[in-house]
Design a protein around this nucleic acid. Structure first.
Lengths: 338, 338
DNA sequence: TTGAAAGCGCTAACAA
DNA sequence: TTGTTAGCGCTTTCAA
């Protein structure tokens, strides 16, 4: 049986109220003498407040939920770390939930987190087509911050990346190097991020007076395999293609494999640009030129927003857009004879 | 104000006890008729049990804590995913805690998790030299499963990898390929895993009648940088070295960089073996031969053990040792002229 | 400065 | 089969 506030009170000859005041650092209402007496007992007995009991009366648990598709997708650990660091600073703990973008699991976790009275939820999902349960979640009154993959709804708080701009600058970089026949391996086009990156790609081409060729566009899956298959298709259909924009790094890795298996060299024969800048993109040979998403910072920011929301503080903005950044490494090069 | 058991009771004209029985699926003590009536109301009103209130009385929260050094270290996401999947199956949620192997943070998280009355904790740390707080944690009565990095104490439950064997088979693989001058970049030697891998390396050499040369051993840090520096030192000091055993994949990546910067080819000039088999080891060029740690399975198993412990079920073994497995890819090759 | 008492939402003896 | 009641450990209102 753990020691409780009652035990302390009894031993100190005071009421539980007084002990509670000391435990919670209420500045007034306790004489310095009794405060010291209580603090001493707390230390001696190793008293630890029971957060469950506290939560029952305050309705606050100092706990948030982080709902993501999959922590083993290399894009999410940095986000998770950012969220957790931020939470830890403010004294919160975080529940990790993996949904695999599965609607049912999303609902399950939302229900479980609500039952456990988390103070707020950070939510990422690509299930855009059917997101009633997200809207419902948001409207249910519990503070929610949406991350990374955009959701349409009024009064939503969110941390996003400008995917359109990312697609634009990735493509622009290739164009600046003289490439004109630029392939694009997109993400799954039911996600907003994939659509936006593709739009950015198209706009960059148009702005440079290059015609959009549907044969140069392949719908991938944000996974390595999509890159493998996508590059294969693109290389077969477009003998004169000199560069590929893979809409995430994982697919760029897949493209690397295929390009090599075709006997081409990167970047001499084919330039490649990725998207995300996950850690290992610097280790690949040749190091991948890519669009950096500040995942850690986004996590940090999302948690900070959420906690401000929880604690009723004013937020300057409901939406914070992070700007992607071009990181030039070794996988892109001037077009041959360009 | 959320709907409570009381509301349901009032509307159904029964006592809260009866409602509680239905909510908790107690098989007896409720007529089918009232059960249906209550279930109907539960649905209509969207009643959700309050896990906090429940936890206060039952002392069970259906929550576990996962304490790891750093989720953004590529070795941990798979473990975390395994833990979370297992937990989810049994109806538990998991708190994610990153300690950076910092003793103070470890203690902080342990305290916080106890205050939140988690039912159990899965703990990973490399802070072997000063692990009184871990022993204390274990003795405090809360179910604990130690993961990956071994701790010495009686009655500890744990899921470990046989690092000694891993070090042995990695080295043996190189010896079998004809290598004799084999460098070793170890992990931080205050960790047991690093020591064991090194011991395995030494034993494999001795078993083959090869003398141990301290100049071929470099103490790294399990990070990319350690691999970079370690390979540099080893290459400079040992002109005839033909292979390197890097005690984790991250350091192997670092070694790749250095080896290339020296103008050597992998595996033609220098063979490299890693340890862990994290996802991206298959993507590197050349693909890394390495020792596979079944991280996901280890996570899965650790959580399953913990939950059995929590629920008072019998455990066959207190310690489960996973066996490492050699995965031969393209970074190892017969020694030149061998 | 201090304390009495109510109550958060639920479970679980025990009684009917 | 059903209900009464106490109590989990804490915060908070109100009164002293």
């Amino acid at each position: 049986m753990a020691v409780t506030i009652k035990d302390i009170a009894r031993l100190a000859n005071v009421s539980v109220t007084t002990v509670s005041r000391v435990i919670n650092n209420k500045p007034e209402g306790v004489s310095e003498e009794t405060r010291q007496k209580i603090l001493k007992l707390v230390k001696e007995l190793g008293y630890q407040p029971n957060a469950i009991a506290r939560g029952l009366v305050t309705k606050k648990t100092k706990t948030i939920g982080l709902i993501i598709p999959d922590i083993s997708n290399p894009f999410f650990p940095d986000i998770a770390r950012g969220v957790e660091d931020s939470a830890h600073i403010y004294g919160y703990n975080v529940f990790l939930c993996n949904t695999d973008d599965n609607l049912e699991k999303e609902s399950e976790y939302i229900r479980a987190l609500k039952e456990k009275y988390v103070d707020g939820i950070i939510f990422t999902s690509s299930s855009i087509p059917k997101h009633e349960h997200i809207i419902e979640l948001v409207e249910s009154g519990i503070p929610v911050v949406i991350m990374d993959r955009r959701v349409d709804s009024e009064n939503i708080y969110g941390v996003f990346l400008d995917n359109y701009e990312g697609g634009y600058i990735a493509t622009k970089h290739l164009i600046d190097l003289g490439h004109e026949k630029i392939g694009c391996i997109t993400g799954p086009l039911y996600t907003k991020s994939a659509k936006e990156r593709l739009e950015g790609y198209k706009k960059a081409l148009l702005d440079s007076g290059i015609k959009i060729d549907e044969k140069l566009i392949f719908e991938g899956d944000y996974k390595i395999n999509g890159g493998i298959i996508g590059a294969e298709r693109l290389l077969k259909d477009n003998k004169d293609m000199s560069a590929i924009f893979a809409c995430n790094d994982l697919m760029a890795y897949g493209a690397y494999k295929t390009i090599r298996s075709f006997g081409y060299k990167i970047p001499d024969d084919i330039s490649v640009v990725g998207f995300d800048d996950i850690q290992l993109s610097q280790i690949l040979e040749p190091q991948l030129s890519t669009i950096k998403q500040p995942a850690y910072d986004m996590g940090l920011t999302a948690a900070r927003m959420l906690i401000k929301l929880i604690e009723g503080k004013k937020l300057k903005k409901k939406i914070i857009n992070f700007r992607p950044q071009l990181v030039i490494r070794q996988s892109t090069k001037l077009v041959k004879g360009g």
